[in-house]
Amino acid sequence: MPVKNRLAELHPQITEWRRDIHTYPEVLFETHRTSALVAEKLRAFGCDEVVEGIGRTGVVGVIRGKSQTSGKVVGLRADMDALPITEQTGLPYASQNEGAMHACGHDGHTAMLLGAAQYLAETRNFDGTVAVIFQPAEEGGGGGREMCNDGMMERFGIQEIYGMHNWPGVPVGQFAIRPGAFFAATDLFEITIEGKGGHAAKPHETVDSTVAAAHVVTAMQSIASRNADPISQLVVSVTSFETSSKAFNVIPQRVHLKGTVRTLSNEMRDLAETRIKAICTSVAEAFGARADINYVRNYPVMVNHEEQTQFAADVATAVSGKCDDAPLVMGGEDFAFMLEERPGAYILVGNGDTAAVHHPEYNFNDEAIPAGCSWWAEIVERRMPAA
Rank of each mutant, 00 (worst) to 15 (best):
G115R: 05
G142C: 12
V130P: 00
V130N: 02
C148M: 15
G105E: 11
A116S: 14
L120T: 09
E138C: 08
A111F: 12
E139F: 09
A116M: 06
G105I: 10
A131Q: 00
G144M: 06
G99C: 08
E146C: 15
G128L: 01
D107S: 06
H109A: 12
A103R: 14
A117T: 10
T123P: 00
M101F: 15
Q118L: 08
D127V: 02
G128N: 01
V132E: 01
H106E: 06
F126P: 07
L120N: 05
Q118S: 14
T110G: 08
R124S: 02
G99M: 08
V132A: 12
C104W: 10
A103E: 15
C148F: 05
C148G: 08
G142A: 10
A131R: 00
A116K: 09
N97M: 07
L120G: 07
N149R: 15
G140N: 13
Q135C: 08
E139I: 04
N97F: 10
E138Q: 07
N97Q: 07
N125C: 11
A137S: 09
P136T: 00
E122W: 07
D150F: 14
T129M: 02
F126R: 03
E98D: 15
R145Y: 04
H106S: 02
E98S: 13
E98P: 05
N125T: 09
R124Y: 02
Y119V: 15
P136C: 01
N125Y: 02
A103I: 14
A100V: 09
E122C: 10
N149F: 06
G140K: 13
N149A: 11
E98K: 12
G108C: 11
F134N: 02
Q118C: 11
T123V: 14
H102W: 06
V132F: 00
Q135N: 04
A103P: 11
G142M: 03
C148T: 14
A131S: 01
G151I: 12
E146M: 15
F134K: 00
D150Q: 13
A111V: 10
T129I: 02
M112T: 13
A137I: 01
T110C: 13
N149Y: 10
G128P: 01
L120F: 13
A131H: 00
T129K: 08
Y119L: 08
A116F: 13
G115Q: 09
G143L: 03
M101W: 04
Q118D: 15
L120K: 07
T129W: 00
D107M: 10
F126I: 06
T110N: 01
G141T: 07
L113W: 12
A116Q: 07
N125G: 12
A117P: 07
G140V: 14
C148I: 15
A137T: 08
G128M: 02
E122S: 06
A100E: 15
G141E: 06
G141C: 08
T129V: 06
T110D: 05
G144N: 06
M147H: 07
G105S: 09
H109L: 14
G144S: 09
N149G: 14
A111E: 05
H106D: 03
M101C: 15
T123L: 04
N97W: 04
M112P: 08
D150E: 13
T129R: 02
N97Y: 04
N97S: 06
G143A: 05
R145E: 11
H102Q: 09
Q135I: 06
D150K: 06
V132P: 00
T129N: 02
G115C: 04
G115W: 05
